[in-house]
Amino acid sequence: MYSLKGKNIVQLNVNKEIHDVVIRPSDVLLNTLRDQLGLTGAKPGCENGDCGACTVLIDGWPVKSCLMLTVEALGKKITTVEGLKNVPIQKAFIEKFAFQCGYCTSGFLLVCHALATIHPYPPDIVIDEWLQSNICRCTSYEEIGNAVRAILSGEI
């Protein structure tokens, strides 16, 4: 049985690198990534799982890092926006004007990237379901839809 009490040094696999971090069991992944690894691409927006700005990928699936204990992520592959290296969705977001202030962008990028990886040919309803997990307050969402469709169709 694995257990963790008090502060401990543990290893996280983030963006294909292994990092030592000091955590307490009550630490949530969002704070560990930001405060200890400087991976500030994941943003706090509500810390309640409602906005999706803190979304990261855990073993390829989107997860809101504000509602995951860091200890739950041990042994799993964590991907943050800093780990996306020239993937098509980044280009698509730029070309399709899919962001303005940029604060929600990391979360959206990771959801879109995971969707394209897991469901390369999703029907519209699946695109809607996945992307409804995040809030963008600047754009009309149409631009984000255009960006994700551009990578799904192979246009970008």
Partner: peptide, 21 residues
């Protein structure tokens, strides 16, 4: 015109107040 800071905003490089830790 593509916005000047576009690349920073799709890579996590764009820093907001709370990102200065």
């Amino acid at each position: 015109v593509i916005r000047k800071e576009a690349c920073n905003k799709v890579t996590g490089d764009a820093k907001y107040t709370n990102d200065f830790i």
